[in-house]
Design a protein around this nucleic acid. Structure first.
Lengths: 174, 174
DNA sequence: GCGCATTGATTGGCCGACCAAGGTAAAATC
DNA sequence: GATTTTACCTTGGTCGGCCAATCAATGCGC
């Protein structure tokens, strides 16, 4: 609930006390807030590990998969190529990732987690688990499953859309 | 490193293994994705109106409330002061917002939506409603209510950080 | 072999969002 | 009244994320 305006005693609200955003799209409004708060929380949890939110997903994939092409990373993460490029440049600079040209394709780049980064695996996994628990505190197993199910449907909705969704267009094949 | 998958060049599309991120925190993973996809979708819906995601919330509040102190905006939106400053600078530059010094407090700034911006009200509201419907397509009334309820609990969890934040507790001090 | 479309990756620009610091004005304290 | 504290905003930096444009290498058609 939004308890921020509890102090507004004599606010001459011209219409309602609820913001228009919450009136027009209550769930959208909440999703925005939750997304942002979740990212902030992730940042706090990951700070100890020395990486930024967004990077952990890349690292986790790299730890799982071993050396992989950057294009594969882009496809799997469903991110913009430029986003991945910049993120990898920073991860390389901080020593978490190594990049090398693909001998089989001179325009491609192979990416892999460095040995040093493997020490983060435990930390990051723990942080991710803590974040999960912090996020879902107070929800029983059934509620968690239901939330996961509903979010899954929402994700599917947001992914594919008739309005020229780039994600859809990008992953149109296969 | 955990299980290094054999890097087959011809990976069959059927075996889409779950990344570690999804294993360690499935809901967190989905929230991240949904948050990002939702923001992208919002950007698409708002592009016609000529504003960027994040700005619509500010504008909606300004349309509702009339002239308001910047500090009030910061408090209500729960954003970083610097974020609001920069956003307002851009909104001012695009003519959607007017800022003036508060005569009653020379360090404060009064913000209000310009008359020109009011033409956006309809567009933005419609876009926001479309976004809501697009997000929730295929969910019946009960599911929508349940999703809103669960997201509300999650939001509350994410808000009260620092109390149960194990990351800092693990560090020991601070 | 040669031209052209496709793929892979990078650069630059922009926006939202954070933090850290700083500067000024009001309020609280003495 | 003078001093400290607090509030309000700005600047500069960083990061994730997008788009548009670009360059290099591959592959296909001819």
């Amino acid at each position: 609930m939004s308890a921020h305006r509890s102090q507004g005693a004599d606010e001459p609200a011209c219409t309602e006390e609820l913001p228009s955003a919450a009136r027009c799209g209550p769930v959208s409004h909440t999703i925005s807030r939750v997304g942002r708060l979740h990212r902030i929380a992730a940042g706090k949890f990951l700070k100890a590990a020395g990486i930024y939110p967004g990077q952990e997903a890349v690292m986790m994939y790299l730890w799982d998969s071993g050396p992989v092409r950057q294009s594969e990373l882009i496809k799997v993460m469903d991110l913009d190529p430029s986003t991945v490029t910049k993120m990898l440049q920073r991860l390389e600079q901080t020593g978490h990732v190594r990049r090398s040209p693909d001998p089989a394709d001179r325009r491609a780049v192979l990416v892999e987690a460095t040995g040093a980064s493997c020490s983060l695996l435990t930390e990051v996994s723990a942080a991710w688990a803590d974040l999960e628990e912090h996020t879902l505190a107070g929800l029983d197993a059934h509620e968690r499953a239901e939330l996961a199910r509903l979010l899954g449907k929402v994700e599917a909705n947001l992914c594919k859309e008739t309005l020229g969704c780039p994600a859809e267009a990008r992953r149109g094949e296969v």
